[in-house]
C-alpha cells in the first residue's frame, strides 16, 4: 500500500445556510492514517461540517484541502477524482434498498473501474467478509439487522479503497456491544489499510476508544473551542463546555 501523505485540512472554514452561519473559523488538520473525531452537542453542525469536508456542501468561506488539493477551488474533473477517494458511512447506512448487499458494494466498482463482473463480485464478497458479512451477499438491506446494515455501509464505503473514510454517527442506534465491535472494526481497518478516517459522533465510549485527535464544535459561539487528543482534553481542558461534554456533565451518575 502506498504511504501517500493524504491529509485533510480545514482552513478558516465557514459554513452557512443563507445568512445563517452554522460554524465559522474552523482550522484543523487530519494526519495521514489518523482517526479524527468531530464532536459537539446536538445541533452544533457536526454533520454539516462533514458534508463540507466531503464535497457535499460548499463552504461560504475558507478552504478544504484533501491530499494537498483545495477541493472547492479545484476543477470538476479533479473534484470527481478526489470524490472517488472518499468513502462515507452514513448515519442510517443509506444502503440502496432495491439492491442486494453485493450489488451495493459492486455499483461503484462497476462505475469507476475496468474490472470484469467476476472480479467485481469477488471484491464485493471480500469487502463484505472484511466487515463480518460473509455469505450475506444476496441479502437486501431490509432483510438484515441495523448493526449489519451499518457494517454493510462500511463495506460499500470501502469499495474503491478510498484514501479518506468518513463516518456520520456510526454508533447511533446500536447497542453497546455492537457499537464496540464497530469501533474495533474501524480501528482494525485503519491499522490495516492506513486509511485516514474522520468520524462525527457524540458517543463518548466511541470517542475515547477510537480517536487519535478531535475537534470540539460549540453551538453557542458557532466555532471550534478545542482540538487535540480527547483523553488529554478530558484531563486538561479548562473550558467548562468541553469538560462537561467529555465528563457527561461532570458527574458520574449511577443507578
Amino acid at each position: 500500500m502506498t504511504d501517500a501523505q493524504a491529509l485533510i485540512v480545514a482552513k478558516d472554514l465557514e459554513i452557512s445556510y443563507g445568512d445563517f452561519v452554522i460554524q465559522r473559523d474552523l482550522n484543523f488538520t487530519v494526519k495521514s492514517g489518523e482517526i479524527f473525531v468531530i464532536m459537539g452537542g446536538s445541533g452544533c453542525g457536526k454533520t454539516t461540517v462533514m458534508r463540507s469536508l466531503t464535497g457535499l456542501k460548499e463552504p461560504s468561506k475558507g478552504q478544504v484541502f484533501l491530499g494537498g488539493i483545495s477541493f472547492w477551488e479545484a476543477d470538476q474533473k479533479t473534484r470527481d477524482r478526489i470524490a472517488r477517494n472518499i468513502g462515507i458511512v452514513y448515519q442510517s447506512g443509506a444502503l440502496w434498498s432495491s439492491m442486494t448487499l453485493a450489488e451495493n458494494v459492486s455499483l461503484p466498482l462497476g462505475e469507476f473501474t475496468n474490472l470484469n463482473v467476476r472480479e467485481i463480485r469477488e471484491l464485493a464478497s471480500l469487502k463484505l467478509a472484511l466487515v463480518g458479512l460473509a455469505g450475506f451477499e444476496d441479502y437486501y438491506p431490509s432483510e438484515i439487522s441495523g448493526g449489519m446494515r451499518k457494517r454493510a455501509g462500511v463495506a460499500r464505503a470501502l469499495a474503491l479503497d478510498p484514501e479518506f473514510l468518513f463516518f456520520d454517527e456510526p454508533s447511533a442506534g446500536l447497542d453497546p456491544v455492537t457499537s464496540s465491535l464497530l469501533d474495533e472494526l474501524i480501528i482494525e481497518l485503519r491499522d490495516s489499510l492506513r486509511t485516514t478516517m474522520v468520524m462525527v459522533t457524540h458517543e463518548l465510549p466511541s470517542i475515547f476508544s477510537v480517536a487519535d485527535n478531535c475537534v470540539f464544535l460549540d453551538a453557542e459561539t458557532r466555532t471550534m473551542i478545542a482540538t487535540g487528543d480527547p483523553k488529554r482534553l478530558k484531563k486538561e481542558s479548562q473550558d467548562p463546555k468541553v469538560h462537561a461534554f467529555l465528563t457527561r456533565g461532570g458527574k458520574n451518575r449511577t443507578g
Binding site: M1, L130, A134, F136, E137, S192
Partner: peptide, 25 residues
C-alpha cells in the same frame, strides 16, 4: 506478506461465514 494484508486476512477469518446463511441460487 505485508503486515496490513496479514491483519486483513485475520479480520476476514474473525467472522467466518455462518452455515446455511447463503441464499440458494
Amino acid at each position: 506478506l505485508p503486515e496490513g494484508v496479514q491483519r486483513l486476512l485475520a479480520l476476514m477469518a474473525a467472522v467466518p461465514e455462518k452455515k446455511g446463511v447463503r441464499k440458494e441460487a
